[in-house]
Nucleic acid binder design. Structure first.
Lengths: 347, 347
DNA sequence: GATGATAAAACAAACGTTTGTGCTTTTTAG
DNA sequence: CTAAAAAGCACAAACGTTTGTTTTATCATC
């Protein structure tokens, strides 16, 4: 377990009076290919594992132009949603021998771009990016250069970059259907940052569900333009004034739901008795709220895992680099924040 | 903004028909020291920034034996507590020019040790470690070798390694005092993993507070041996049977509190009317629970920031490497989960 | 017009690998 | 006993930097 002062092939090679070449070949499993004698091989191997030696990855990286390193850029690692993704990214990358260099863009597009460029400069072999912002034009260059880069969650399908995301459309549609099934007709929708792919898809799922039931779409019922708690709070307040007859709120993020809950509490509207609430994205604590929140769960972990797998695939085979988008299924988790109401008019 | 195909000093040097040496010296700001002519300097500098060139950090790392890289080992990045720490670590490291290589030990001591060794092998310049487990003997070697390594949260003061942690003792004492102030005398305590520094310190704060008030310490009132939600649930159940007369529970982690809440709900004990609850560590959602939980907040962000600063200090100056422990103050956040009771016997 | 400063930049080695090729020595075949 | 083949390994270059030392040209000085 003690690590040695033998920290280079040269030192080891001197120990055995062979050349560094030989040691390198033994340690990279090329012994038979280069006809190293079994005795030499065993001696070196034993020594290496006993002294717990591994060839310097920096030198290796220089020579091989591969660093066994993947860059991960996240808007906010303290956000449980991204933390969940990161967790799986780190873990499956590890099982494939890759390490993760983590950058936090602090929800700032400029910092994001900086981070991406820093990571390429640091010679990462590939990159996983959860973008912030509605656009990311600086990425087209990387798409053109066919760099191994996969987008997660905040995707840009037009860029021709591989991506993985939850199936936001279907998730939102399922949630809306659920509300409709429970008799709701005036369903407000708290959207996230306008123009982002997830937000657009979710709103689209919402309107599609409405149309399918012939429920008129009222543009005044969709509010908001950020995924944050503040926005949920504020827009719910406004919504309650602008459309007092709503019976349900579909909050398109976790934090939006938290904000909405706070607003509703202040306004003395009971959930679900006065107003039903459905959130998007599940987090353990949602079950502990009162009432426990019904929500559409995203497969965080799978998203992270899938991103790494996609990336590794593209690293091995740059050919299939374009337009392999993955949409992972969501699932509606039914708790106690939706009330069944009778809606005489549509019975 | 477009990055060039000029990706080596050599290429650039040819462009200007100078030597790589000259380019290197210009780009590292040593122009005047080595008397590079101002024209040459300006030309190269301009070109470099126009083409957005930076010397290859891998080659640099090999030559300089410095990688501008810090390893971060976390038991579970999906846990908001650690995510908060990581967030600041990443950010302040970045402002100092360092990148973070992230490892997740999955609460597994063996994997932790592997990760630590992997990171050293990867030539990180320093490391920040949130250990799991009660011991970490493999670290003594690194302490002896005076490697830049700082411990966070789960610290081992005896190892002689620098560390930063919340002042768990004072935090727990404050929480217990608060319960006592509110008339509680039969206060149960849900501890975390026994033997870990935070858990020991917290329990010690709890007992100290009791003693100071002359409240008898009842060993049966301290239960638990893990920081997880399951443990909180289970041990609360057991506690309610073993000591039905308790009026308050001090849960020494967030998740423990969540588990306790679940158990109390099942047993139809209202919080805070039947039983008061105080948690340890604040997370945004605690305010949204019902009732909003009183808790002792740890300075996550400061902990992460402090860890990096300590580390950088020790990297610059290995001399002051030993025994610089930082205890960051906690703060009691009072919400609505504690009821004031009259306690005639001790009035 | 030699002598020595000084300016401007090049040389070469080193960091620790990997890899194509070349060099001995031993073994095998005929 | 010779020629060819195989075994076992070493050489040297390259990856892209940085840095101590040299080199070359320019200029001023006496």
């Amino acid at each position: 377990m003690k690590s040695s002062s033998y920290n280079s092939l040269k030192l080891i090679s001197e120990k055995f009076s062979v050349s560094p070449t030989t040691v390198s070949r033994v340690l990279s499993g090329q012994a038979k290919k280069y006809r190293i004698s079994p005795e030499t091989e065993k001696a070196i191997k034993d020594f290496a594992i006993r002294e717990n030696f591994t060839p310097n990855p920096i030198a290796k990286g220089l020579r091989l132009k591969k660093t066994l390193t993947i860059g991960l850029v996240i808007p906010d690692i303290a956000n449980p949603f991204f933390a969940g993704i990161a967790s799986q990214v780190v873990n499956v990358a590890r099982t494939h021998g890759y390490s993760i260099v983590l950058c936090d863009s602090e929800e700032n597009p400029a910092l994001e771009q900086q981070s991406v460029e820093l990571l390429w400069a640091r010679q990462v072999d590939g990159m996983i990016l959860c973008a912030v912002g509605q656009t990311a034009d600086y990425l087209v260059r990387y798409a053109r250069e066919k760099r191994p880069l996969v987008l997660v969650d905040r995707v840009f399908p037009d860029l021709g970059l591989p991506y993985v995301s939850a199936d936001n459309f279907s998730g939102a549609k399922a949630a809306t259907d659920y509300l409709l099934d429970n008799g709701h007709r005036r369903i407000a929708c708290l959207q996230g940052m306008c123009g982002t792919a997830p937000s657009k898809a979710r709103v689209s799922g919402y309107t599609t569900a409405l149309h399918a039931r012939g429920v008129p779409f009222d543009p005044r019922l969709v509010a908001g333009d950020s995924f944050g708690e503040q926005s949920g709070y504020l827009d719910t307040k406004l919504l309650l004034r602008a459309a007092p007859d709503i019976t349900a709120i579909f909050a398109m993020s976790n934090l939006l739901a938290l904000g909405a809950l706070r607003a509703l509490r202040e306004e003395n509207r009971a959930v679900p008795d006065d107003i039903s609430v459905v959130a998007f994205d599940d987090q353990p604590y949602l079950a502990h709220l009162s009432p426990p929140l019904t929500t559409v769960a995203q497969p965080h972990l799978e998203m992270g895992a899938a991103a790494v797998k996609l990336l590794l695939d593209h690293m091995r085979n740059p050919a299939n680099a374009m337009s392999s988008g993955l949409l992972l299924p969501t699932s509606l988790i039914i708790r106690k924040s939706v009330r069944k109401i009778s809606q005489p008019t549509t019975q």
